[in-house]
Amino acid sequence: MADAAQPDFEPEIIVFACHYCAYAAADLAGVMRLDYPSSIRIIKLPCTGKLEVIHLLRAIEAGADGVYAAGCLEGECHYLKGNLWARQRVNHVKKLLTEMGLEPERVEMYNMSSAMGVRFAEVANEFTARIKELGPNPVKRKGVSPYAAAREAASEIALPEDTDTVADQPNRPLAPLATTKEG
């Protein structure tokens, strides 16, 4: 179990953000010059419905202190129900973490629209504060960058950061976690 809050603890947080909403909201937050913690590292997905249990677990396994999915507002998913699927999967991972003895609060599902830049920053601050309270993920592995490893593990579903469309992304095979190094 994690130690009590440490004052100099800078969490590493992975965000699986939907291309259509949360990713655009993050952009907007940037344009609006809003402050949010640098602990947030974003992996862009075509839809949070692509997110599976294993991607969340791999991020935790790689040492991420917290992981959240940010999808469209409920009822407004570009693919109709992707965000609802994601919520079910996040809830399932919460159950698995509890079984393992890890805090279920380390994973979460948020919803926002592309116009909600302020909400994006708010969620980032809120979640970072929550993780600071929980302390570091006890599963830290030397030489493994949680972001690089989580991104690699999600390579089959993630979009390159510079893509503007979600069309025709090739599926890439999963690389073994151990080979993913810092930087």
């Binding site: 179990m1 791999r58 698995l96 393992m100 003895g101 890890l102 006890p138 599963v139």
Partner: peptide, 9 residues
């Protein structure tokens, strides 16, 4: 993955 996380913890 769960077993690795538990072992790591």
């Amino acid at each position: 993955s769960e077993l690795r996380i538990e072992a790591g913890m």
